[in-house]
Structures are given as structure tokens and as C-alpha cells.
Design a protein around this nucleic acid. Structure first.
Lengths: 342, 342
DNA sequence: GTGAAAGCGCTAACAG
DNA sequence: CTGTTAGCGCTTTCAC
């Protein structure tokens, strides 16, 4: 364990190369206004000393760190993992890193986590923040530049949303077409905007199909909540259940299996998101596909534009809230089928 | 879009409160050597101005950022997601944030990614780095403090590994006990240390059971590679296949299903890792459980100790390579069964 | 108890 | 083309 006396800095390189700090800085930043010979000498010195500029000092001087933050409600959820991955990959391509902040579905933590993540980087993406509209609105100005995923905020920031209403409607219509008339929706967190959108979609659906009975059961976001809802679901006598997301659907599937309720023979189940695993459950899950990775990549794209405003209308577009809503696509697999006795 | 003239800093608070910068700093850091009245005035000013110390300036002055980096080979892999999550949660509990670096299985990128992540924070955890031993050894000193997951390095850093050899052996023994004598191993990346350990375990297994034929097929780490291996696997006439990990096993499962090969009727399949979804495939996957989250949490624990050396023997323990090897546990589910015709 | 000043490591005018 | 100097925003001796 050889203890390095002190981290070597730009000054060490400067003195070793017999030049000033400024020159070293110039060389390290690829400035072409440096004599070839000197530059070579500096590079050699840097090499010898194994010198790498300290990003902190650099960031402080430049006023930017080429780092962005991302706030997610729950890193355990594959949906957010996919978005994170999209953001991370896209940002990396442009030389940016990402700092993660997981609020563990605790909306009261979001404020401080988001602020911190923002202050340590050049921007932030808020993924499905659970905080109230008022809080978000108050926080927004201090977070700029930022982009919002699964949440809207008039004019404050670029917004990437998913057409959850349409997606759940499509799922419900699919069940309807299979003859189901008694449905259950296992709802997500009240604080989730995407859950509200699903509820809107279902409202429209029921309005268009008065003969359908739709019961809403409090649910959750995880396997466990789906698994735990089995008895309540069975008690409703429904033949089709729309789960808040794939995880809940999978938990339910597993619970139904334990109760020896056959899917889709006796009951049809749908998920939402189409996380990678949905294709591998038994039976494979009928769900609504959300372009998760693309959501993340687009989020970075927007942030990138704000960070480096380029010539064209981008300024106009992204300066205000350039909202994009991603469509979902119905993915019919084995977990849904005709209503029993049809 | 009201543009803030300039981010408000400590100086603004100081002048507003009519004190010096030093005093503000003291108050913000909870120093008790400040007059109660003054302190209150400062706090009020900070509140009014919505002042929050700039972490960058702070970090530069203090020489630490309360941030750590983590390098993973592939953020798309649930195995690494689980570890990341463990690290992130544990670090967050101690007030630390994590910066992620995804090398996309490109070992040539690891060097620069790891260095950067390290320099931006106070330490780094390298998760299953793919780089060569020589490279790792050369890099290690510049990365301290760091902790290694799924990789060993004599004396250089705390090391957290999994007993992959024993795990795969247990899986093979399980198949053996079910009567299987013709097995296939779908191997992982050559550069993966955990893959080498699996191979060692299998070597021991075949040595103990000369009557077993074990064929090794080049595989991969993903669904796709498992799915793509179906024909090669079938061509071997094997009755049991050990996949590198759960993902590969799931891909294989899906491919076998398409070929109408029944599992476990005609073929038994095992995974490795026991990612959350393994319990939900059809049939559910027999696998070896790896304590993924704990691996991440322990990684943070170690790093934390290095960052804040506490009284006791910890120095002795963690200063050198305090290696911990986590055992796996055999998880028998539906994807394995008696050899056909048994 | 509080302020002045030096410094963390680097970049960016501004002179020469 | 290169060196000097002044910060970036904060913490911390060291005097007062």
C-alpha cells in the first residue's frame, strides 16, 4: 500500500515540463495555439506523471460538470431501470455521466434528492416524480435545465409522456372484444400521474360501454401487490383484470396459479409497460408496449439541446415545454382469452 | 422563463446577513462557535435567498464529494441492476450518491470509465470488470479506495465474490441426481471471471462423475444468446442444459417452447443468479440464488469503511484485501425434472 | 466569536 | 505563442 503523498496536479506537470500552468491547461484541452514542441514536452510530462485533470477543479472553473442527474421513484422497477438505461446510454454517447437518485417512492424525499442531483450536475431528468403539482411547480425553476418524464407541467420544461389512457383503453377493448363484461382495474399509486391517466382512459371506456362493469381495486406497483390482490380480485367475480403494470400482473399471475385459477381459461390478465420479461411469464403477458428505452434516450436528447442550444428552431421548441407523447401498442399474448363459457 | 442573473452564492447570503463569508460557512456547517443571534440571522438570509451551498465548491475545498462511482458491464442485465440498487440504497442511507458508468461489455472502455468515475467521487466499486488481470492490477492503485465485485486481486482491494463454482456444481449435481448424463453448458463471456469459476466447478463435477458427458457451447449473457443457441443445444442430444445465467436460460426456454420441446419433459434447463423474474417464467426456473442486493450493500459497506476508517480492527481487515465469498443456494423449480424415459 | 486571506485544481482573459 | 493573474464557490487556519 504505497501511499501517494498528494494527488498530482497540473502544477506538477507544469514544473516538470518547465512551463506555466496555463500552457499545460491549454495542451490538455487541445488548444492549437501551443508550440508543437512544447506541447509534446507537456504531454510527455503528463504521461510520466500519470496526470489526469481533476474533474472537480475543472467543473468549478468551467461552470459545468458534464454530468446530469436522474431521479426515479424506484430503482427496483424494471420500467425505471429501462428508462435509466436509455438516458445513461444516450448521455454517455455525448460524453456525459449520470448520477442516480432513487426516492424509494417517498415523495417527501424527492425535493432534496432532485435539488442535490441537479446542483451536482448540469441538468436533471425527473422520472415520474410523485410530488404534488404545487411542489413540482415551485421546484421547477430551481432545477432548470430539466426534462420531465411521465409528468406534465405547463411551459416549464420539456415533457415526455406516454399515452397511458389510450393504452389501457386498448387493453380494455381487447378484453371487451373477447366477451369480458366484468372487469377489475388494479390501480397504482395515487400520486402517480400515469395512474391518473389510466383511470381517465378507463372512464372513457366505460362511458362507451355502459354494459361493462369495471371495479377499481387499490393496488400497487410491485409483484407483491399483485400477488396480494388475488383474493380481492377473485371476490369480484370479474373475468378480466387490468393490472397497473407488468409487475403487478405477474404477481397476480403467480397468485392465481397458486389458487389454481387457470389463465386465460378462467381469468384474463393484462399488464402495462411490456418490460422485457413479460414475454417470458406463463402464460406470456398481454400488455401495452411502452418504448421505455426511447423515452430515456429522448429525455437525454432534450436535455442535450437545452445544454447546447444549436442553431435551428430547437430554441423555440425546447425552450418552452415541447411536449411529446409516446403512443403505446397493444401486445396480445397468452394471458388473455375469451370469457369463460363463451 | 425568468432568467436568474447568476446563481446565488455564499457571498450573497453573507452580505444580506451583514457578516463575513466565513461566518455563513460556519453556520451552514453547523459550527457551534457562532453567536446564536448571528446564526439565526444567517439562516434567515439563506432561507430568503433560497441559498443552497454549491456542492462543487464544497467538494473542491473539502477534497471529497460524498459521491462514489460504480462501473458495470451492462446496465440491461438485471443481475447488475440488482447490485447497483444494493449499492445505491446503502450509500444513500449514509448520505452518498452514486455515479454510474456502463461499459456495455466493452473492456477497452472500462479503464477510462472507471478512472473518470473514480476521480469525480471519493471511491469506486468495480462490478465484474472484464479487463485483464494485468490491466486491473495496473489500474488498481490509481482507483483507491475501491472495492471489487466478482473479481479478485491479491491484496489490492476488498473483494466480494460469489461461489460460482459451487453453485454450478450444485446445479449439475441436481441434474445428475435426476438421471441426466448428457449435459451442456452454455458458457458466458471469456473475459468474465465468474464464467471461469463456473468452468472450474464443472471440471470438478465431471472429474467426480466420469460417466457424465458435458459439452461446452459458446454462449453469451442475454436472452438473445440463449434463444439463438437452441439448435446447437438440440444437436448435442443432451437432456440437461446449464445456462450461464437466468437470462440465457430464459431465452433458451423460449426457444425450446417454439421448437415444441417440452421442459422439463424432454429437456431440463437451469439458470444462475435467481433474478427476480426467474420465479415467473414457464416453467419457473431452477437456478442458483445469488444474494445480489446484499452484494451491493456489502460493497458499499466496505467502501464506507475505507472512507471513514473507524477505531477497531477494520483498518486491518479492510486495508488489505478482505475477501468475502458469498455462497449460493440451489433453487429447484419447475424447469428441471427426471431424465426422459427414466 | 468573527473576519481576512489563503487555497482546493483548474480555466480564461489579458498582457507581453 | 506563453506566462501572469484573477477568479469559480467554498472551507479553514490565523489573527483580532
Amino acid at each position: 500500500m504505497t501511499k501517494q503523498p498528494r494527488r498530482i496536479g497540473i502544477a506538477d506537470v507544469a514544473s516538470r515540463a518547465g512551463v506555466s500552468l496555463a500552457t499545460v491547461s491549454r495542451v490538455m484541452n487541445g488548444s492549437f495555439t501551443v508550440d508543437r514542441g512544447i506541447a509534446a514536452r507537456v504531454r510527455a510530462a503528463a504521461e510520466d506523471l500519470q496526470y489526469h485533470p481533476n474533474p472537480l477543479g475543472r467543473s468549478l472553473a468551467l461552470g459545468k460538470s458534464e454530468t446530469i442527474g436522474i431521479l426515479v421513484p424506484d430503482l427496483a422497477n424494471p420500467m425505471f431501470q429501462a428508462v435509466l438505461r436509455g438516458v445513461s446510454m444516450a448521455a454517455a454517447r455525448d460524453g456525459y455521466r449520470v448520477l442516480i437518485a432513487d426516492s424509494s417512492e417517498t415523495s417527501s424525499e424527492e425535493h432534496v434528492l432532485a435539488s442535490d442531483a441537479r446542483r451536482r450536475g448540469d441538468g436533471v431528468v425527473l422520472c415520474a416524480p410523485r410530488m404534488s403539482d404545487e411542489e413540482l411547480e415551485a421546484l421547477a425553476p430551481t432545477l432548470q435545465p430539466m426534462v420531465l418524464i411521465n409528468r406534465t407541467l405547463s411551459g416549464a420544461a420539456p415533457t415526455l409522456t406516454v399515452d397511458y389512457a389510450d393504452g389501457i383503453r386498448a387493453l380494455a377493448e381487447h378484453l371487451f372484444a373477447q366477451g369480458h363484461r366484468k372487469l377489475v382495474f388494479l390501480s397504482g399509486p395515487e400520486s402517480s400521474a400515469s395512474n391518473r391517466l389510466r383511470l381517465q382512459g378507463l372512464e372513457q371506456f366505460t362511458a362507451e360501454h355502459p354494459e361493462v362493469s369495471l371495479q377499481i381495486l387499490p393496488g400497487g406497483v410491485s409483484f407483491a401487490s399483485g400477488h396480494g390482490a388475488v383474493h380481492d380480485v377473485l371476490a369480484t367475480q370479474a373475468t378480466g383484470v387490468l393490472a397497473f403494470n407488468d409487475l403487478v400482473a405477474m404477481g397476480l399471475l403467480s397468485g392465481l396459479h397458486e389458487q389454481e385459477v387457470s389463465v386465460p381459461g378462467e381469468m384474463s390478465v393484462t399488464g402495462f409497460d411490456d418490460i422485457e420479461f413479460s414475454a417470458y411469464t406463463s402464460p406470456p403477458l398481454t400488455t401495452a408496449t411502452v418504448p421505455l428505452n426511447e423515452l430515456g434516450e429522448q429525455a437525454w436528447q432534450r436535455l442535450h439541446e437545452m445544454l447546447h442550444p444549436s442553431a435551428e428552431g430547437t430554441a423555440v421548441e425546447s425552450g418552452a415545454a415541447a411536449g411529446t407523447v409516446f403512443p403505446t401498442t397493444l401486445q396480445v399474448r397468452g394471458s388473455t382469452g375469451p370469457v369463460p363459457g363463451a
